[in-house]
Amino acid sequence: MIVAKRKPFEEIKEMIKDYKKVLNVGCGTCVAVCLAGGEKEVAVLNAEIDMARKLDNNPIELGAQTVERQCDHEYLEELDDVIGDYDAVISMACGVGIQFLAERFPDKPVYPGVDTCGMSANQAVGWYEERCRSCGKCVLGMTAAICPVTMCAKGLYNGPCGGTNKGSCEIDTEQPCAWFRIYERLERQGRLNNILIYTPPVEWNDQIPRTLIQPGYKKPEKAG
């Protein structure tokens, strides 16, 4: 899932300092699961802002609403009637949701309440680890299902580099070397042949905003 981290409070406070009425919109999907921007986090942030602004003698009126998914028109519709009451919006969705919400309400200043940090797996409660950078051309078949783009600090396709150190990456003894693990797993599966051959330069697919149309579907006439 997409994971995010709540922005530092001071940064959020500074962004909205000139507004008197702000709507804080949470998202009920990924960012709710990773404890960054769901209903609960919206309530917590609003309480913090409310208190801080009172202390500053600059009271603020805050609204709270959490929609199922901010990256979907269908769920943003419910904001159509309320948004007009506010000067600005904080969105606690991931970067996709924040932009999508802002596109629907182009007259409203929209501010991010979180920093989006990648596509990660849940290792334990509150602990997430990145696994994919959505490069657009998956090579996990070659690399024993360990991503060289994300898990290798240099994103090498012909690793390991000379810095691999007793199984850890040169950047940190706590960080396993992706290529060491790729080697181990391929060896275990008798598939080392996969990496004996040279992998030519990658044609990067993530250099322009990408669109995706699944087979059997087409782009709507008036796509936003």
Binding site: K154, G155, L156, Y157, C161, I171, Y198, P201
Partner: peptide
């Protein structure tokens, strides 16, 4: 890795690798 140097937060390019 750029982490070792004097600009540890620089974007590492690694568009292609050494081989």
């Amino acid at each position: 890795h750029q982490k070792f140097g004097d600009h540890p937060m620089a974007k590492g390019v690694f568009d292609i690798d050494s081989i």
